[in-house]
Design a protein around this nucleic acid. Structure first.
Length: 288
DNA sequence: AACCCAGGCAACCGCCTGTAT
DNA sequence: GATACAGGCGGTTGCCTGGGT
């Protein structure tokens, strides 16, 4: 047991004398052979036992992101991209959670893909949206409201479920009250667990929902996207075979002005209603 | 052919959480 | 409750590669 020189965490390993940077094929082989024989875990001790001059964390990362046998290599498919976008809308930068719903994909890969591809698309889409809202704001509001408008755009397009721990925490769904009424979010199905919907700050349009993130995520994929398909059909949208069939983030919609393009209006509120309906139907919400 | 530059991606870093003591 | 540790996560960095000049 080492004597700690100061309070706080000690480094995961002494960095001296360790290899850094790209892994060689030889190192990969040693690591994967070792894990095949001894299994994962005990990462701190693993390098010493396996005879690798690497930090334990580095070994873990290499295994999880590259050497695992179930890693799917190659381009992200359109379906996967769609799923990433939807999950990111819902979860934000929770890459590991998102990766958990994409078999064979790693959080690092998805994070990189998002940063290099999707965030750009999102940005250009958002700037289009901001332009639209600025235009309509300029007509209605006095000068000086543009910051407010931008903030509202942000709110509208990032109604993200924020969870730090697995078991939740309150979730904020900034839906309009009439949206909720129209979609039966306030219907008696919720009344059997009275704490599931709690008006926040006296504002009837803001609600906090308690639920178990694990339960949600574990059954999320199939149920949610089946609902998306159903929702699209109800809205008269053709289901194109993509996950969920939703076209809200198609390339065409990302570029140019989607109003007047004949493309279904990006309707995040509708997607959230779908989610809310999904949550409602789960009947697995738990009181804390 | 040589150089520059931007994009992509693997790897690293630091912080956080959960668990054991 | 405090501390130590292992593992996990997300942000960032820096190298490599391919395209443009």
């Amino acid at each position: 047991m080492c004597v700690r020189s100061r309070m706080g965490r000690r480094p995961c390993c002494s960095k001296e004398g360790l290899n850094r940077g790209a892994w060689s094929g030889f190192e990969d082989k040693i690591l994967s052979d070792y894990i095949k024989n001894h299994g994962e875990g005990k990462w701190r001790d693993l390098p010493k036992r396996a005879g690798l001059k690497r930090c334990g964390k580095s070994c873990r990362l290499r295994w999880l992101n590259y050497l695992r046998p179930d890693i799917k290599r190659g381009n992200i498919s359109h379906d996967e991209e769609d799923l990433i976008i939807k999950l990111h809308q819902l979860l934000g930068n929770r890459w590991s959670l998102i990766a958990g719903r994409l078999p064979g994909r790693t959080d690092n890969e998805i994070k990189n893909y998002w940063n290099t591809n999707l965030s750009k698309k999102l940005k250009s889409h958002q700037s289009n949206m901001e332009r639209c809202i600025d235009k309509s704001k300029a007509k209605k509001a006095p000068k000086g409201d543009s910051v407010d408008a931008a903030a509202k755009v942000d709110d509208q397009f990032h109604p993200v479920i924020r969870t730090k721990a697995v078991r939740c925490t309150k979730v904020y769904l900034p839906l309009q009250q009439d949206d909720m009424m129209a979609n039966h979010i306030l219907e008696p199905t919720c009344n059997d667990s009275p704490s599931t919907l709690v008006p926040q700050g006296g504002d009837p349009s803001n609600f906090l929902i308690d639920f178990d993130m694990e339960d949600l995520v574990s059954s999320f994929e199939d149920d949610f996207f089946q609902l998306c398909v159903k929702d699209d059909q109800n809205r008269g949208n053709p289901v194109d075979g993509n996950v969920g069939g939703s076209s809200i983030w198609t390339d065409e919609a990302m570029q140019g002005d989607w109003r007047g393009s004949g493309i279904q209006e990006p309707n995040v509120a509708s997607e959230l209603r779908t989610l809310a309906t999904f949550l409602d139907s789960e009947e697995e919400w738990q009181e804390k």
